[in-house]
Nucleic acid binder design. Sequence first.
DNA 1: CTGAAAGCGCTTACAG
DNA 2: CTGAAAGCGCTTACAG
Lengths: 364, 364
Amino acid sequence: MTLLRWPRPAGRPSNEPAALSKGKATSFDIAHMTGVSQSTVSRALRGSPLVSEETRQRIKAAADQLNYKVDKNASNLRSQHSGTLALLLFEDPTADESHINPFFLSMLGSITRACALRGYDLLISFQQLSYNWHADYADTKKADGLILLGYGDYLAYLDKLQNLADQGMRSIRWGAVLPDQPDISIGCDNFQGGRAIALHLLEQSCRRIAFLGDASSHYPEFFERYRGYVAGLQEAGLAADPALQVDAAESTEQAGYQALESLLARDTPFDAVFAASDLIAIGAMRALADRCIKVPEQVAVAGFDDIPMSRFLNPPLTSVLQDTKLAGETLVDNLLRLIRGEPVETRLLPVKLVVRRSSQFGKS
Amino acid sequence: MTLLRWPRPAGRPSNEPAALSKGKATSFDIAHMTGVSQSTVSRALRGSPLVSEETRQRIKAAADQLNYKVDKNASNLRSQHSGTLALLLFEDPTADESHINPFFLSMLGSITRACALRGYDLLISFQQLSYNWHADYADTKKADGLILLGYGDYLAYLDKLQNLADQGMRSIRWGAVLPDQPDISIGCDNFQGGRAIALHLLEQSCRRIAFLGDASSHYPEFFERYRGYVAGLQEAGLAADPALQVDAAESTEQAGYQALESLLARDTPFDAVFAASDLIAIGAMRALADRCIKVPEQVAVAGFDDIPMSRFLNPPLTSVLQDTKLAGETLVDNLLRLIRGEPVETRLLPVKLVVRRSSQFGKS
DNA sequence: CTGAAAGCGCTTACAG
DNA sequence: CTGAAAGCGCTTACAG
């Protein structure tokens, strides 16, 4: 009998073959099995060039046979990084808890995929604005970096972002890209999107275009869309009429419905509605339908985000498409760069106007 | 000066106050600061009854002051559990990579919330059916349990489920609840949902109700919906006509569009369409619209899942609502029970018929 | 109620 | 190219 007997690590009965102790094999088992040191096993499995090809093959074969997998907790503890990113979705505190904004859901999907392709795990959590993100994900070492996603009052959490940056947290935010921001953010070109909608509606012969959405620095993404809209009007020699701008801070149907009612209550004529998001547009279209105002015959409507349901609306909604696949990849890639200490470029992603029936003013 | 000086753990320069070494405080720092042992710090912070209230308060205060957080990797390694659940979304291999099935997105949201409320983290990943789930999430100790979500050929991954069960993996699956399953699954009452749709359509005076969706044990959820539909017909003294059942394995618009075209090609008269999912129904409605067949005037249509966009369709789609909030909570609670070694009851969740205009046969 | 000690399973200098 | 050793930061018997 030539089978060598190696000492077993404490805790495993020496009469039980390692191959049968399911999910329990350690690098020591592999080492004993192949007759090398545990350090060499670790090196081989991590692809270190310090191990000879022949040794590596033997070790890999043994690892496969024992169904061995590196214990992530141990390797993370030792190497001090987790191979995990955390995605924090912060929502309006008032949001209905059963539904997530479809746009963020779409982002979530693309971020998940991007992480998987790069070999990172993704931890997901919903957060209130009041929460201490850093403490829970960075200090506990659960994640190497944070992706922040969500609407909400920008000025209200500016301090928190500043704090994250001060503590050297690796985090990146989806949102408005502005000068003098404390953090690194990636967003789409809200300005050009707003401008494109305005130019498109003007081309449909609309002249009194209402804007539904907050137009203040509290909601910088909406504000950028608004500024693009104003710029578009100016190019056509028109001035934006303040009476045609109605606040809608939340991106919800309810907010859109109410915003349109406010607009109607002002008794200011309008022939088009540019909603700062598709959800707001959906609410506005419902309010118009309830008053028997026909879209697009009497009023043209356009939104922003191009969420999946927009093409199914009646009439289908003209909107601005944000490329969520590219957005997710860009967020992940830049966060990874940040983690590696490489320079990161704040980026503005291009948008695309998607014309559908809701904006064909006057046609039926 | 009465400030005591404690020895510093190796690795930290003793001239640097612990409070300034950001994100680096350990339980030893707290111990030194409060004059107790590190074990006591660990106990106090974990709420052990072995620590006196006074000591606990002092320790907690020190921990707050130093911004101390337990290192999850260390505690996980030592205690051998991760406080993390993994959600594996397995999709049809053919699925368009940019969009996730809206129903699963909704489940994802509710599972994320349920985990957060119970103090668990959630790891998310997309998986192909061919993947070795167990190895990647259980053997690596990244997660204490698995939640499996997704459509796909049930028979094709039965072996894998068996394997998971054999290896003692803590996992739970959303899907059909059938006798003799190798794993524990939770699902909605697909049978009663299918029956409710059939009875509803019959009530609208439909007599030739087509079923769009796979009706085989490869797709047991669809099959249960089909069996419910057959049962509903039987209650009205009608037999299901095989010519009215068209396969659609994937839950996509494309599959629905094609299924309806196949149905039309059969030249069998029908006055209603029951699609096995809303996505299939959406495709079918488009195919009907392309042929200028009016819904619900000429053909009534109903779906299943009640995804968010269904109420916005033209006409709004009658469907069967699955309570995703309850589903998410049930999945998480049962998985946690499984992890704790408690008995788990396979559960069938109730569904609710949601009637909208698409099924008002004959009306305009 | 508290402390000293062992050890979870790795990675990574250090030495050869 | 390989091995012996230290140590990541905790939790948990064990002893008092």
